[in-house]
Amino acid sequence: MTSYQPTVPHQAPSTSQELLTVPQVMARLQLGRSAVYDLLRSQQLASITLGRARRIPTHALTDFIHARLDQEAAA
């Protein structure tokens, strides 16, 4: 007789580990596609590549925003 092992429901990643798509970042920053890719290309905004897909961790977006706020405050 086999024993039944209950499965643990898959939990969504915590906010700090969530990965965003480029369109999601575009919406959050209210920027166009080219502007977001320019930020990625210049490494102002960190990202990872999964296959052909580019994903931006939410913490990278938060870090980018804080860095820009700090730059504006220093100016």
Rank of each mutant, 00 (worst) to 15 (best):
V8W: 09
A46M: 05
P57L: 04
P23Y: 12
A27F: 10
L31F: 08
T7G: 15
A74G: 00
Q17S: 13
L19W: 11
E72N: 10
L19H: 03
Q44N: 02
S34E: 04
D70A: 14
L31P: 00
A74H: 06
L40I: 13
E18C: 15
R54H: 06
S34R: 08
M1A: 14
Q71T: 08
S47G: 02
E18N: 05
A67N: 07
Y4G: 00
F64C: 04
S16T: 08
L69G: 01
H59C: 04
Q44E: 12
M26E: 14
S47K: 03
H10Y: 10
L69N: 05
S14Q: 06
G32C: 08
Q30P: 00
P6H: 13
L39W: 06
H59N: 07
L19S: 05
Q30I: 05
H66C: 04
M26A: 10
T62M: 06
L45F: 13
A35D: 09
A53Q: 01
Q24W: 09
L29R: 02
P23N: 15
R28C: 08
G32P: 01
H59K: 12
I48F: 05
E18W: 13
S47N: 07
L50M: 09
L31D: 02
A67Q: 13
Q30C: 05
Q24I: 03
H66K: 05
